[in-house]
Design a protein around this nucleic acid. Sequence first.
DNA 1: TATAATTTTTAGTCTTGTCTAAAAAACAAT
DNA 2: ATTGTTTTTTAGACAAGACTAAAAATTATA
Lengths: 229, 229
Amino acid sequence: MHIKKYVYFCHMFSLAEENYLKTIYHLEQESKGGVSTNAIADKMDTKPSSVTDMVQRLAEKGVISYKKYKGATLTSKGRKTAAGVIRKHRLWEVFLVDKLKFHWDEVHEIAEQLEHIHSEELINRLDKYLGNPDFDPHGDPIPDKNGNVKKTEKKLLSELSKKQKGVCVGVKETSSEFLQYLDKRNITIGTKLSVLGKEFFDGSMIIQVGRDQFFISKKTAENLYIQTT
Amino acid sequence: MHIKKYVYFCHMFSLAEENYLKTIYHLEQESKGGVSTNAIADKMDTKPSSVTDMVQRLAEKGVISYKKYKGATLTSKGRKTAAGVIRKHRLWEVFLVDKLKFHWDEVHEIAEQLEHIHSEELINRLDKYLGNPDFDPHGDPIPDKNGNVKKTEKKLLSELSKKQKGVCVGVKETSSEFLQYLDKRNITIGTKLSVLGKEFFDGSMIIQVGRDQFFISKKTAENLYIQTT
DNA sequence: TATAATTTTTAGTCTTGTCTAAAAAACAAT
DNA sequence: ATTGTTTTTTAGACAAGACTAAAAATTATA
């Protein structure tokens, strides 16, 4: 429990605050309405009580709106801050893959640290140096300087039905286990694939990639973003 | 005052700890013998009492040796850790200047943040990407993976006497005021210069740079490293 | 609608890293 | 050798961010 003693006006956010904002940003997109305390705690691997505490302080700072028991929502100021952190994360990922030749399954944790480096000038120069990329190595869009993301109409592979074709444009899950699994099957951003069959009872699929055909579980299909063609 | 309750064995150092180690490393080189509490406090802009506290905890962790009232000295483990931080700092500075085209007076603060990113793989790849540089943009040597620095026989400009010549190989002071001052006089790493005259009573000098001749204060001369030729 | 289960919040504690004020040690000077 | 000054250390407090245990609010269930 924290007792508020002084009001302060600093526009810099701590590492912990930035992580909370980022998490709330992501959770907001998945589920409409306020983001619940437990959902945040789950995603951040902390306890709900810690979340309540922080969320109340963030509300005081004006970056989220929050009513007790009703969950949290980002204000426009909060959303912009969160998008800024995500922008940095994704730009650094591009740097790590394009320039330092890291593999796409190795960059997440390092980018988690780099996203908290504070320097507007740095990120602008990095952006330019990388050729103003629109997507990170996992196909996620990079927010612009104002925090805007152009949304693309992508679907989960699991939403496609038999005979539909498309291009892999991103992954939802970014764990190295999953990414390495995709590598073994030669699936990466830009890979063309088509659905040969879909099983109703377990959601599994048979897909074609190049001249290979193989089985894909529901879980896999729910973590691959496709742009249908 | 901190009470020690549990012994722990983690080999990761916090941001604050890394900064203390780095500071002690630098202070050790300037003055022989243990580094005093006040010296650390001065350099880090903290209070001596905070230093005592931290220094005692660092001693428990085995990275410095410390006797009450006698100052602190890095152990080999501590020195290696400190050199690792400095290695990262300087490699990032090279990146910022060489790749992102920052000016040498703009990189210090950003590198202060980047030096705390934890990833061995990252720094090895960065090193390679930059062409395994030996010196940072200010002429300071970059420690190798094991924390060893090859020492060069450089002198301060203030140590030279009339008619001696040399090449600027580094700066001691790295404030942007000083670096911008040097820029105005076209002095940078690699600049050849010669001492035309030296005034005894105030340590000022007349030097030649290219076809320009100008006056230089004692303070300036004490912050420029020269390799005599 | 009353009760049970779940979610969320409060209260209190802990750790790291900081601070101030005061005590103690070390150094300087008569 | 005693006194004074400086340096260093101790003691106690505070803030951020986390935790546990318990209380309160909400939601689900019968």
